[in-house]
Amino acid sequence: MTGYARARIRSLVIHAVLFAVLALWMIPQVYMLSIGLRAPAQAFDAALITWPVTFDNFITVIRDNPLARIFLNSMIVTVATVAIVVAASSLIAFACAVLRLKGSLVLYATLLTTLMVPLASLVLPLAILLKTFGWVNTYIGLILPYAALGVPFAMVVLKAFMEDSPAELFEAARVDGCNAWQIYWHVALPLVRPALVFVAIWQFIVTWNEFFLALIILTESEMKTLTIIPMQYSGLYMANPGALFAVLTLIALPLILLYVVVQRAFVRGLTAGAVKG
């Protein structure tokens, strides 16, 4: 057997194994979708997939629940958080990496400690703090803490990318007459675009799926985000798994679709450290 043929067989085997593992891995999600597509009679069948397929559950669920409003809640909170995180982290990364302000390193290290703090330790004081501000059941009550939690990681990534940029570029901008803000806007930000994209996507995913704080802060169903609403439905649809899983599918869908769309940019931002322009 030639080496080439051996390589082909090895590749085929590996692909087969990967597909097998993938198939196993996808079972829960297929299961969820499948139950959602079942007629009520078969809802409790202990099988992975049943026929025939019906969309009744989906229709019922959409009709009966303000999913659009909940989706909007998630959207508003997440987009606002992402915007604030990208802005705040790029500004401070710039201050540390390019401006090299006095004491910026100390500040940087201090903010880094946030990464080591488990959210569990913070929910109690945050809840009380937000209550004091009167921000329970508001968008801003989630947005600002989320931003505070997300900035350190984004700051680390952006600072690293900015430091990798050639210093002469910033000096040339200075000689060209730019003040600090102009260097930030015209030079630093464009230079780290892949990192900005990565940070934005990551923050989007993390914020959209955040559970603990949302659970505590959002008690009115109207304000709840997609992430915490399933709890309500598990009670509502206890005897109706078909409907439950239909709604769960709809809830999980947006982020999955989003990820499929942006995954190339996301992975590219992640691996951008490898290839320097």
Binding site: L169, E171, A172, V175, H186
Partner: peptide, 20 residues
């Protein structure tokens, strides 16, 4: 004085052109 205030222009060794 800061560079912009000195009325100078500079050609850098690595050219430092804005890549974007």
């Amino acid at each position: 004085a800061e560079p912009p205030e000195r009325g100078i222009a500079m050609v850098f060794q690595s050219y430092a052109l804005y890549p974007h």
